[in-house]
Amino acid sequence: MQGAFRAVRYPVKALAWLSAAALAAAALAAVLSYYMESGEIISPPRGGPATIALLDRPDVRLVMYDICRQNPSREEPPRVLAREYSDLLASGAIAKLAAGTRVSVLSRDIGAGMSGLWSIKVRSGPWSGRRGWTCPGSLVLLHAYP
């Protein structure tokens, strides 16, 4: 009887250790992830806020591309789609983030979706918790890889 108990006890103990190690690794990865993804919105050359897209829609993409490509100062509405920009801003599809707003950079998109834009999660300010997309020049990451 004691032998059977021992035979069960060791695998259970080993499983418990493995689970604890896995949990610790996951927690460490989450902390590291949060740390490495952290970035902040930077002031455009002439100051002012940066625009982010809060919805992945074709009309939003067009306006964002217009901002990224044609309006590098980013503190003014895009030149070509100025009216659409105002409408999207009013409807909450895009928003303006002040310089210094903390964000997590989830991915720097190259291909599909918001092609060329950076996918972010806002970490401070009124839009905290929202996911969005912004022009590459609108923010910096705080921690580099080799």
Binding site: A29, L32, S33, M36, E37, V105, L106, S107, R108, D109, I110, L141, H143, A144, Y145
Partner: peptide, 9 residues
């Protein structure tokens, strides 16, 4: 001029 990974983790 710099480079980095697409995703941090």
């Amino acid at each position: 001029l710099d480079a980095g990974p697409q995703r941090a983790i």
